[in-house]
């Protein structure tokens, strides 16, 4: 349970990080360390070089502008949890982040680390998927933006190149008074979720749903948008029976199976939790958030 030998780098600037990434062919970026450090301790990863981002300037911060929330990659989960602007404009992220690990891990863990690690049950990638976030990556070759829908390439594998790093993400904000909810089922508070579900909703003057987003994680290899359920709800009056019918479509996902839960149980949870998320989101319609 000790890390293997590696060469440690602690660059101070983004260009230095990008130079190292371009030059080293078996390097790992160390951000908050709440996933990479256990993987090093258990020797699941054997990098030749570890590039620590913790002393790099200009990689953290939260900013709301032009209807979007920009969060830099090394922003600690704790700083998101206690951010007034996130609480008032993007409350689903707070509800999700309170279920990310524990205080001790959120003090260190980062947004960029969670996105790049892309654990199938992780909350922040699910929120990014629900909000149609844009992920910003950078390499010596230049910068590019990746839509969250295109970001997962497979199980725990983001669609970024070996010389690229995640520098942050932009989350489009929903209008004031939107309904939101993020709920999950885990064996203990703060454990890896078995399945989680998020929902966002707005209604028009006639009380019909004019925008809805539903996401489940812990089901597929990466967070899944429940597009069938979204289609069923859009344009309708939000009510429990409609939510129940729509959420049932989540049972059709091809769900993972592992030591924690069989696929049939994950499908069941996907349906139940997405229904509950919709119900909770509805009760919050017209609130002062957003």
């Amino acid at each position: 349970m000790k890390p293997p030998p590696f060469t440690y780098h602690d660059p101070r600037t983004i260009p230095e990080v990008l130079d190292l990434l371009a030059e080293k062919d078996n390097a790992r970026l160390l951000s908050g360390g709440q996933s990479l450090m256990p993987m090093l301790n258990m020797r699941y990863v054997l990098p030749d070089d570890v590039i620590d981002l913790n002393r790099v300037d200009g990689l953290s911060g939260i900013e709301a502008a032009n209807g979007s929330l920009g969060i830099a990659g090394m922003t600690r989960q704790r700083d998101i949890e206690f951010s007034d602007v996130v609480a008032s404009r993007c409350p689903i992220m707070i509800e999700a982040i309170l279920q990310v690990g524990h205080r001790q891990t959120r003090n260190r863990g980062t947004l960029g680390g969670s996105l790049a690690h892309l654990d199938p049950s992780a909350e922040l990638p699910a929120v990014a998927m629900a909000l149609d976030a844009t992920i910003h990556v950078e390499s010596k070759r230049g910068k590019r933006d990746i839509a969250m829908a295109d970001f997962p390439a497979g199980y725990m594998t983001p669609s970024i190149e070996l010389d690229e790093m995640v520098t942050g993400a932009t989350f489009p904000l929903w209008e004031e008074g939107h309904g939101y909810a993020f709920i999950e089922f885990a064996r203990r508070h703060g454990d890896f979720a078995i399945v989680s579900a998020g929902a966002l909703m707005t209604t028009d003057g006639a009380g019909k749903v004019d925008r809805v987003s539903i996401v489940v994680s812990g089901v597929g290899p990466s967070p899944l948008r429940c597009t069938d359920a979204e289609r069923m709800i859009l344009g309708q009056t939000p009510e429990l029976e409609l939510f129940r019918e729509a959420a049932e479509t989540a049972r059709a996902f091809d769900a993972m199976e592992d030591i924690h839960a069989p696929s049939s149980y994950r499908q069941h949870l996907a349906a139940v939790l997405s229904r509950r998320a919709l119900e909770k989101a509805q009760t919050r319609l017209g609130g002062s958030n957003g």
Binding site: M1, K2, Y8, G33, Q34, Q104, R108
Partner: peptide
């Protein structure tokens, strides 16, 4: 205890905030 960030036994305060010391390198 566990050396992979699960048990919390190694929790210390780093600049006033808790952290699991098994999930940090000494150089950090």
């Amino acid at each position: 205890g566990c050396e992979h960030g699960v048990c919390g036994a190694c929790t210390i305060l780093l600049d006033g905030m808790t952290a699991r010391s098994c999930l940090m390198l000494a150089v950090q």
